[in-house]
Design a binder for these strands. Sequence first.
DNA 1: GCTTCCATGTAATAGGTTACATGATTTG
DNA 2: CAAATCATGTAACCTATTACATGGAAGC
Lengths: 193, 193
Amino acid sequence: MAIDVRIMCLGLLSEGDASGYEMQKAFKEGPFGHFLEASYGSIYPALTRLTDEGLVTYAELAQEGRPDKKVYSITEAGRQALIEAISGNPLDDKYRSEFLFMISFADLMAPEHVSRLIDWKIEQMKANKARLDDVQGEASTRGQAFVHAYGRAVVDASLKFLTENRALIEGASPSIPEASEKAPQTPASMAGE
Amino acid sequence: MAIDVRIMCLGLLSEGDASGYEMQKAFKEGPFGHFLEASYGSIYPALTRLTDEGLVTYAELAQEGRPDKKVYSITEAGRQALIEAISGNPLDDKYRSEFLFMISFADLMAPEHVSRLIDWKIEQMKANKARLDDVQGEASTRGQAFVHAYGRAVVDASLKFLTENRALIEGASPSIPEASEKAPQTPASMAGE
DNA sequence: GCTTCCATGTAATAGGTTACATGATTTG
DNA sequence: CAAATCATGTAACCTATTACATGGAAGC
């Protein structure tokens, strides 16, 4: 069956009641943010189905000027389903990076574009790290704390690699020698400009 | 437009002619293996479409006892399309990990299952690393060498974290005190069984 | 003798995203 | 006054996966 949005929702609800809206937030900004995501378009139908299957229930809170808020709770059957789902073997991690694909072809790019991409990636990593720091306190279990620390370790390693090795693909390109008007930031004594 | 299977194929073909079959292999085992993948069901239609668009051409090699082998080559228009595709801004990396999701709920698992998952993950990472070592020589450009080294750095960091910190979630579980018949591998003096 | 490798391709299905529809309230 | 936040939900779309169809040759 593997882990789909339904199971992800059960996971969230196992730690406390929440509405669909709140759950989307939690996936984006919470402790699962760095390795899972889900949009409203998948969460709401998932909750409907979980309700039909008896794995969650909800209480409807009337609100002024907004749709009623449905606060979902996991049922005992839901807990069982969660436990069953995490008792199997996980599928291989899936990592998809357009950044790395593009950088693979750095030789076909203008040098400024290479630098721009690296800069952008480093910024993104830093933002990632900041977000991880933000949710640090939210880790309520040992499992979550472990996963959080794992995320930090990987982000730190990525950041370190990028900052320490970017010079390897910046500076003069050997295959497409282009007239560089600006002096490269890294003096690059090996290039002998 | 972003990077889809079509652009990925153009990327591969920019470094040499190949058949659809060979391209799938290349995605799985080659230098892109750790951050991209594609199945036959997406590659073959993509090549058909690329042909229609004039971005690739193919030569048909008659073979005995097998379908003719179609060896694809990138065209000049294809090269332009590739360059255009890598000139934009990449989408955010997508990382999806069922392993981390499951481990988040380590507290709900039998201790042996936690250990099994970690063992499995470490094995997988080692296999990853071995595969990266295998393709080391295939990196023909600086870009590819950089991406390859990046992959190694991340895998090494993951592996290091897992081996050094697994004890944090192994051993006695504080929330579900279960009668443990087998003595835990890590004596866990803090649990005071 | 069974499995894996070679080699292409299609059809059914799954699983999601994006955009839309609706609309008051709070924040800048 | 505009934008973001709260709040749910649907419909159209996209992209890719899985399984199937076909079949000889080579390795174990």
